[in-house]
């Protein structure tokens, strides 16, 4: 039996791993939003009930997105390693993990965005159309603004999901809290590290959800939001 790792050492390890996780998930969420939101908008616009119905485009994009979404993250991690190396010159560490995280999250965000936009009341959009608004204005001032709270919630859900995925990246030495929990905690049977990293991981997910709920509620002007 080894001596248990001293708490201050546990603390240092967890802090550093938390930084890695926040970095990976933060950047991946940002990139996924940058890619997924436009993709979701296009998916919605081209749908039969959208502002510019394009059946073929919609079908093809939808198929690509669904295939992307159905690939298990662990598979992406492996399959994308060549691509990752080409992009960031390494396949291990947090920066390398951002690549598969982003690729996995873009189609996820796209579908969430599409369904958020679909929820915007058709009568409201039509009323805006009758004001002579251009398509760009309809997207920006009507669709995105009316769906704002749902979009924030979608990004929140994505971030929480990515926290989970980033932990899986520990399996291939991706760094971050999951890596710490698996390699230091589990494989070396270090209960303190295992416990601390799992707790912080859970807390991080919880905090992320709380923040996204708060922002969604703050920007929502519907009655349910005013009742707080």
């Amino acid at each position: 039996m080894r001596e248990p790792t001293p708490w201050d050492r546990v603390f240092d390890l967890v802090i550093s791993a938390t930084g890695d996780t926040v970095y990976m998930v933060g950047i991946a969420t940002l990139l996924a939003a940058l890619g997924g939101i436009p993709l979701g908008i296009v998916l919605h616009m081209t749908s039969p009930t959208g502002l510019s119905p394009r059946r073929i485009t919609h079908r093809v994009l939808g198929a690509v997105v669904d295939v992307g979404r159905s690939l298990p993250f662990v598979v992406l991690l492996v399959v994308l390693s060549a691509f990752t190396r080409a992009l960031v010159q390494t396949t291990i560490g947090p920066t390398a993990v951002i690549v598969p995280l982003t690729v996995g999250a873009v189609p996820f965000v796209a579908r969430l965005v599409e369904s958020a936009l679909r929820e915007v009341n058709v009568a409201v959009v039509e009323a805006a159309i009758t004001t002579g608004a251009s398509r760009l204005r309809l997207v920006r001032s009507v669709l995105l603004r009316e769906a704002g709270p749902a979009l924030v919630a979608a990004i929140g859900v994505t971030a929480v999901t990515l926290i989970g995925y980033s932990a899986m990246a520990g399996v291939i030495g991706g760094g971050g809290l999951g890596d710490l929990a698996i390699r230091h905690g589990y494989q070396r049977n270090d209960e303190r590290i295992l416990l601390a990293s799992v707790l912080v991981l859970g807390g991080l997910a919880w905090l992320t959800q709380l923040t996204s709920d708060f922002i969604a509620r703050t920007i929502d002007r519907r009655r349910s939001a005013l009742r707080v």
């Binding site: 009341n121 009568a123 039509e126 002579g132 009507v142």
Partner: peptide, 18 residues
């Protein structure tokens, strides 16, 4: 042309976030 025709649609049609 749409701008020259004012429309009050059937049912609720206001942007709820504005």
């Amino acid at each position: 042309a749409r701008r020259r025709i004012g429309v009050v649609p059937q049912g609720d049609s206001l942007l709820r976030q504005r």
